[in-house]
Every structure is written in structure tokens, then in C-alpha cells.
Amino acid sequence: MALKYDTSDFRNGLKIELDNAPYVMTYFQFVKPGKGTAFTRTKLKNMLTGSVIERTFRTGEKVEAAEVEDQPMEYLYDDGEFYHFMNTETFDQVQILGSVIADEARLLTENLKVTVLFYKGRAVSVTLPPFIQSEVVYTEPGQKGNTATGATKAAELACGATIQVPLFVNQGETLKVDTRTGEYVSRVKN
């Protein structure tokens, strides 16, 4: 028997199984219409696709816990199709299709410590640390003194991503990037 939650267990971060997909609860609210029985209104994020749905549950209604598990792993390499990760304690290796994790894949650098999400025993997604560092391998020459205009240019990073950076950023510099937005944060002094 799978573990079940009822509406009194609801809280942010709860992981539940719904329509054959794992969801994480991002919002819940007790509601009780005029003369009626009580409900809990929720927002749920699909852990595979990232899409958010709204769902209202009757008080006492039961939902199944999602069979999900997070494992700390290290990124190894990509073979053009799959991205490979390793558990550095057990040396177990898993692979995830690049197209499934396209947003994260462009910010992966070798040996980066990540969290791999397993759903029903299968690796399905990867969460990066909040920030990564990567070197600028190509950008147009910097403009000295142009620090405050807010203007940006494209910079290609060693990890493979191309991001918008301020005009003063030079090739060869290492940048700090926010993985949740994919945006430039700052330069890192070598």
C-alpha cells in the first residue's frame, strides 16, 4: 500500500501523486463556502514538467504520496543525447535524456554537485545549486567605464550557455550565474 495523505497533512513542499505524475504542493488554503462543507484549495507543481495546476480537495479526501526521492550526485559528461550523473558514495551512475533537462543542461559543468530526482526509481530531473561559476569563452570586447547604463551583450560560457552580461565583462573572466533564472549575477575575482 502506498503512503497516503489526507487534507490535514497538506503543507507547502508536500509531494503527491496525481493523474500518474508527481506534484509538489506550493500553496494550500482552507476554504469553506457559506453553508457548505470544508475544502482545501491548492496549487501543485508538476515535478516532471514544472507546470502548475490548481486543485481543490474535499476535507478528508486522501491522496497518494509521490514515489519520489532526491539523491545528491555529481555531473559527469554528456554523450550528445544523454547526460550522465554519478552518486559519489555508491558510484552508481544514471543518465537523463538531454531534451528533458534542457534548461538545466546548459548550465552543467563537469563535477558539479547536483540533486537528481528519482520518480518510481527512475532519474527524471536534476536541480542545480542556486549559483554556478563559469568562464566566459567568448564575448565582444569590453567597454571600460561603461558600468551603469544597464546595456547588455551576449557572452558564451564554458558550460555551454550563452547569457546576457553587462558591457564591462571580458573574455576569460569567471561569472557567477543564478541557476533559477539563468541570469548573470556578478564577476568572480580569480
Binding site: V31, P33, G36, T37, F39, R41, E54, R55, T56, R58
Partner: peptide, 14 residues
């Protein structure tokens, strides 16, 4: 059907 009426009221109307 009170049960479905309230459920729809809460999720669709309110």
C-alpha cells in the same frame, strides 16, 4: 447535488 455544487463553487466560481 450539494457536494458537487460546493466543490464547483469553491474551485470555479469563488
Amino acid at each position: 447535488d450539494p457536494d458537487s455544487w460546493f466543490h464547483r463553487w469553491v474551485s470555479e466560481v469563488e
